[in-house]
């Protein structure tokens, strides 16, 4: 079976914790899977609330992903 590629875009505190804002993940098929994979890789994300968008649309429940989909991780910003 081929491993489909998902593109991750991270913002704000999430990008800072991961020390990157743009990378690919393989073999994932929904947003819950992406979340689990990221928490496994970056345990410090557990305490951070963030919204998720798939292909630039905000989602509010687990969403299936096609190969090449872009998943954005969006923590809230408070500074002013």
């Amino acid at each position: 079976m081929d491993k489909q590629k998902i593109k991750i875009r991270a913002f704000g505190l999430i990008a800072e914790k991961m020390e990157t804002d743009d990378f690919d993940l393989e073999g994932l098929h929904d947003t819950d899977g992406v979340r689990m994979a990221l928490l496994g890789k970056f345990p410090s994300l557990e305490k951070i609330d963030f919204a998720i968008a798939v292909d630039k649309e905000l989602i509010d429940k687990n969403t299936s992903l096609k190969s090449g989909a872009e998943v954005a991780l969006l923590p809230p910003f408070s500074g002013g």
Partner: peptide, 9 residues
């Protein structure tokens, strides 16, 4: 409007 380091929302 909101900001964090080099990013704005």
């Amino acid at each position: 409007g909101a900001i964090f380091r080099d990013e704005g929302q």
